[in-house]
């Protein structure tokens, strides 16, 4: 009793901000972000059109992965339909442009809104069922979308899809050329990242995390878990749709196979490998999925096997993913914990 009172007196002198991240970690964090941005801006001067294409693919993939990370990493709702929502985004925007002559930017916005609405609708089962069952519903939904794209060829072009998709122009400035399109995707990734970052540090971000950590408790504290669940789904699916509207002009064709279940599983792996619940996670995961294979081209058809083995090993030893590993490093090397904390924990 007296011991604990002494302890409290010691503790009371401490100010709140003393024990946050250490300055060194802050420098490291912001430093690497700035370095990454500079790297991404100057890299087109040093690599050819093909690598610019690969990096564009990375940026577009990362956007969709950010959407899944928001749902899964923060709100704890697993979706196995990220591929399908990219398909919805890609097909809706492409068909609006090609068949109705709608302006690309307008088509993009419509496609994103459609993805958001369908995403929220898919979120409804999430209210009724939990955990695995939710993953199963979204998995079924993904198959249904692919079947639809394959079978309704009067609209979707069937298994062959739509070819010769044009890249858009902005204020009369054509984005056809690879470098320009690369910068365009980079800007889009920046917008998506800012959006997610803003969301995560807003009260919504806390509500999402609360939903994941302990939905019961969140509800007992008055959080409207229903709305937040639907919102997580809507935004996550909206980002997938957004990414889809970009992938169509990037690869210049769409076909159902691009969006099949395997794609959604790949996104799941990306988010897990990168580190779910970390802002950097999707960027890292998309790097493993899109850029690394290019460096490991010698591995050729064996690449996916290597990737799968890598995933299994990583999950085995670092269940929190690469970004989670970074957090462990931070905890170990960049943070002083107050002696009181340790004392009390040992007590």
């Amino acid at each position: 009793m007296s011991q604990s009172e002494n302890l409290q007196q010691e503790i009371q002198g401490t100010s709140l901000s003393d024990y946050g991240d250490s300055a060194a970690w802050q420098y490291l964090k912001w430093g690497s972000l700035v370095a990454l941005i500079i790297f991404l801006i100057v890299i087109p001067h040093y690599v050819g059109a093909y690598y610019q294409f690969v990096l564009s693919l990375w940026a577009v993939t990362a956007i969709s992965a950010q959407g899944l990370n928001l749902m899964m990493g923060y709100a704890g709702k697993v979706s196995l339909a990220q591929g399908a929502f990219m398909g919805i985004g890609a097909y809706v925007s492409t068909l609006l442009v090609q068949n109705w002559g709608v302006n690309f930017w307008l088509a993009m916005i419509i496609a994103i809104i459609v993805s958001i609405i369908i995403g929220a609708a898919i979120g409804f089962p999430a209210l009724r069922v939990e955990g695995h069952y939710l993953a199963f519903v979204t998995l079924g939904f993904n198959e249904l979308v692919v079947l639809f794209l394959r079978n309704e060829d009067q609209w979707t072009g069937g298994p062959l899809g739509v070819l010769n998709i044009e890249r858009p122009s902005i204020f009369g400035y054509s984005l056809f050329e690879p470098t320009r399109f690369y910068y365009f995707t980079l800007v889009m990734l920046a917008i998506s990242s800012l959006l997610v970052w803003y969301m995560i540090r807003s009260p919504w971000g806390r509500a999402f995390k609360a939903l994941k950590d302990n939905p019961n408790r969140a509800e007992s504290l008055g959080l409207d878990t229903t709305s937040y669940t639907l919102m997580a789904f809507a935004i996550g699916s909206g980002l997938a749709g957004f990414s889809g509207t970009l992938i169509a002009p990037l690869v210049e064709f769409v076909e159902p196979n691009q969006f099949q279940l395997l794609k959604s599983l790949e996104y799941l792996l990306m988010v897990m490998v990168g580190g779910r619940g970390f802002l950097a996670g999707p960027l890292i995961g998309a790097f493993f999925a899109e850029v690394l294979p290019e460096w490991l081209r010698f591995a050729d058809e064996y690449y996916l096997i290597f990737f799968a083995i890598f995933v299994m090993l990583l999950i085995r030893f670092f269940p929190e993913g690469v970004a989670g590993f970074g957090k462990q490093i931070r905890r170990t090397f960049f943070r002083q914990t107050s002696p009181q904390v340790q004392g009390e924990q040992n007590a």
Binding site: S202, D213, G277
Partner: peptide
Amino acid sequence: LQVFDSMTVEENLLTAAQAHVGSIFSRL
């Protein structure tokens, strides 16, 4: 025990307080 493990103490308390401020959209 029902605390939000992955959030800091501060964030836990803010989360507990936030449902009583504004509406879900204004909070954003």
